[in-house]
Nucleic acid binder design. Structure first.
Lengths: 345, 345
DNA sequence: CAAGATGGCGCAATCGATTGCGTAAAATTT
DNA sequence: AAATTTTACGCAATCGATTGCGCCATCTTG
């Protein structure tokens, strides 16, 4: 319909050169105020839209940050994304979000697509499956800023934004021990995913510190989905020793655990106490409300974006940092019998 | 570090023209099999990555579909997105997702950004606030395929993918009536958002058909968030007449309603029965499990993407269709007292 | 064997914006 | 008034891929 209008059209209309139009639109100082104003007015009048493809081609910058996450519908992650978007948009960057569904295959495909799209930076939270990292090599090779959030890898020398998962695991477990439980099970994710390994180490450390003997049977590895949470708990309950408490490495699986326990006619925390991880909204909604570890998710997203922008502005910065944020234990009734806790306001 | 290599570099290495390289890479028939093979091998060997910016600039197609949704973390929507991605990716299209947070301001910003990014097509589910639609005009003017999913507008002559919300509202309400309830409240969204209006019309129709007098007090409008669900229910319970049942226009608010009812020491469905909408995962997890209307969300996403692709392939197709899919009532214990329903497997 | 058909490829323009360098005019200094 | 500096802008190359048109060599056909 309408022909797409370009700086050449504006230039012609104003009898100036395209170079001047380009500079005027970018508020280049070497163009007089009068000309700049005239160009901008004409641009608006003619319905000009800059061709960012041409611009990006020339400047080699797409003003775009790519994001790869396992799932976009998990509360923790979508909150991280909000943080990223807020910071990025404020600086004029667009954000392209993709999800791996915890599959290496899709993570690789996403990485390729974002690389092909020439994103200026990349923020990643790893898929559960991921063990190899060659799909990130192109980014590293071309010095495209790469930041991991939460699910990170220590092998690649990149920025990482996370909490102290060891400490969080330790605190969660110690809390259960303080409530008087000693037979404490742990639902965890794949061992090679650092955050889960560290949460487990924290769990083990708390047990050790309190001279509680570890029983390997009480540790169940899974994808930490709702369904797997239920199945893992089934397994535990069918095992030789019934746990008195369970520390789950995320809330999603903890919710599955609750359902399983209820279905068996048992009570939480009466028969089995529970601690989750992430403080998803459902944690406060489910019956009983879930004690859990809260992470500053949005803050993590903001910082991740800031790290990218920092390196984009100052390419000489190559040293990679690991930024560790505070997490905290949120007490609710799934693990506390003593004081009565009502549904929160 | 590594210099970015182009078709010119490949051309030089192979002593052919860049045109031939370009054609070979695109498997153009006018290039011999031998040359094509040689070019592809050399491309791989030299670590070539096509510059899609240059390509898009020339071809005026970005192979990208934009998506604007209110929230990416709502189960219904993230499932729609999955459907879109599946179809789009299969056809070599990328998907750019953005969220409006139900704010017109952000929806407009998203539309502008996607327009500037020159997406080939746009899929939208409207923000709760949205009343004006001029931000979509640029797309319509340039004949960029535009499809609405779920939260649509009938004013713009564009494709729409949805369920029969009137019928769904009718069925949900009739179900409650069949259970013997007559004082049925309805939590709904902004009246100008068609889907909510139609669900309400269905609700009204069911009441009318059963000669149940409508009481305006029983209809509460809100943003349908969890928090607003709780507040709306507070209001209802503090009102002059207590409802026997509530039909909520989404599950999120229904969950808030459940919490409110529980907090008051009342029972669901004993004191108040409940029907939600969307069949979010939480609907089957919450206690009691929620009767709700299930929408074929992923299917809706797939069809939306297919519509875009169809128009992209055949630009002569301008007639816009409204595709109506089947929804169905999922019975759970929040509305059914007669038969015992256990936690589903 | 000549004429036409076909296959395989190159030339060069093009998409639209950016930018280093150069220069004329205006402003300032001497 | 001449010299110098500053201001404001234009020229033309460039980013990398695509594509209409044309050309030559080989092949087919009468």
């Amino acid at each position: 319909m309408k022909k797409e209008i370009t700086i050449y059209d504006i230039a012609k209309a104003l009898k100036v050169s395209p170079a001047t139009v380009s500079r005027a639109l970018n508020e280049h100082q070497s163009i007089s105020g009068r000309t700049t104003k005239a160009v901008k007015e004409m641009a608006k009048k003619m319905g000009y839209r800059p061709n960012i493809l041409a611009s990006s081609l020339r400047t080699k910058s797409t003003k775009t940050i790519g994001v790869i996450t396992p799932w976009i519908n998990r509360p923790f992650i979508s909150s991280v994304i909000s943080g990223i978007e807020e910071v990025a948009n404020k600086e004029g960057y667009n954000v392209i979000i993709s999800q791996s569904n915890d599959l290496l295959r899709k993570e690789v495909a996403n990485a390729k697509a974002l690389f092909a799209s020439r994103v200026d930076g990349l923020i990643v939270s790893l898929a559960m499956e991921t063990l190899r990292f060659d799909h990130f090599k192109p980014f590293v090779d071309r010095k495209i800023p790469l930041v991991f959030v939460d699910r990170a890898s220590s092998n690649l020398g990149t920025d990482r934004i996370m909490i102290d998962n060891f400490e969080a695991g330790y605190i969660a477990t110690r809390h259960l021990i303080e409530q008087g439980y000693t037979r404490i099970a742990h639902l965890t994710g794949a061992e090679h995913r650092e955050i889960y390994r560290e949460r487990k180490e924290g769990y083990l450390s708390a047990l050790r510190e309190n001279n509680i003997e570890l029983n390997e049977e009480l540790i169940v590895v899974s994808g930490l989905s709702y369904q797997e949470g239920r199945e893992s708990m089934e397994k535990l309950l069918d095992g030789t020793l019934m746990p008195q408490a369970v520390f789950c490495a995320n809330d999603t699986s903890a919710v599955g655990v609750v359902q399983c326990i209820k279905k068996r006619g048992l009570k939480v925390p009466g028969d089995i106490a529970l601690v989750g991880f992430n403080d998803d909204p459902i944690a406060s909604i489910i019956d009983p409300p879930l004690t859990t570890i809260a992470q500053p998710s949005e803050e993590m997203g903001k910082i991740a974006a800031q790290q990218i922008l920092k390196k984009l502005r100052n390419p000489k910065l190559v040293k990679s940092e690991t930024i560790v944020l505070k997490s905290n234990l949120v007490l609710r009734s799934s693990s506390v019998v003593s004081k009565k806790i009502t549904i929160p306001e």
